[in-house]
Amino acid sequence: MTLVGAALAALATTWVLYGQVLPFSGTVGFVVAAYVVFMLFYAGLTALTRPWAVVVDRLMTTIVVAAPAIVGLALADMILTTVLKGLEVLVHPNFYTHDMSGVRPTDPYDMGGILHAIVGTLIEVAISVSIALPLGVIAAVYMSEVGGRGARVVRTVVEAMTALPSIVAGLFIYSVLIIRLHMQPSGLAASLALAVMGLPIMARASDVVLRVVPGGLREASYALGAGRWQTVWRVVLPTARPGLATALILGIARMVGETSPLLLTSGATNFMNTNPLHNPMTSLPLYVFTAVKSGEPTFETRGYAAATVLLFLVLILFLLARFVAKQRSPR
């Protein structure tokens, strides 16, 4: 009752003050002002009948509820605007089946597409994951299951390198492979940059998951006469499987969306290129970036459509992670 009354009073007062009396304008200002006025009314009305502690409690509750509401609205707004802006391109099936070769940025939307970028992203991420994932998981096994002084050193260094900004990983690969070794900008260079960035992240995430496997399970396994390898393979890894899968898929999702290392290493192209060893290979985030930087309105819209596809790719990975995490290990 108090809540509704305060809300109504706040809206009315703000409307009068804001639009009619004070020389302000703009939606942001209106919402902020309405919120402040609402808090005042709510506090005042509560204070009429309740003790001070309740007033404070209710005020804090409005703040605590407002924070996730703002974030939720922002997230929904972001997804909606991106999808809506890209919609006029997304409805053309050629957007998914063509590349941009021979298509000018100003051409209509029924020409050209982002197949080359989708394929590029998939190839680059596949290569980098096939490098970073096994190395990361095995390094995590070393850190948490084998132990010893060496493992502590590895853990320290890996934890330190999770701080490596992705652009620096890209710059590293750029200056070593492309400048020193005279490699072309290519899909492989981009994959290596992603792998270098993702390896510490994956090793760290797997290590955290393996460490919470209960020690009692390991001891039980040893007590039954199992060796180190059998314990890791038959007990530790199956127990940690759902958590491990979730951590790794989230790591992959982060690699899919990473742009800055690709900017330095892969080179941009309009053509379909399925060979990671030769010639530049573009990818979805890079396509979005070039499209937006071009300043050409129609090309920008294509960028939004590509961003939508990228969002869906990440969403699919995320749902996959949820699905895997839900499954229990077989025994």
């Binding site: 997230l75 991106t82 989230l250 982060r254 961003a307 990228l310 990440v314």
Partner: peptide, 13 residues
């Protein structure tokens, strides 16, 4: 899920 959203999408928005 929000943690997995690519930064370029936030940048665009």
């Amino acid at each position: 899920l929000m943690a997995a959203v690519p930064s370029i999408v936030f940048g665009l928005w």
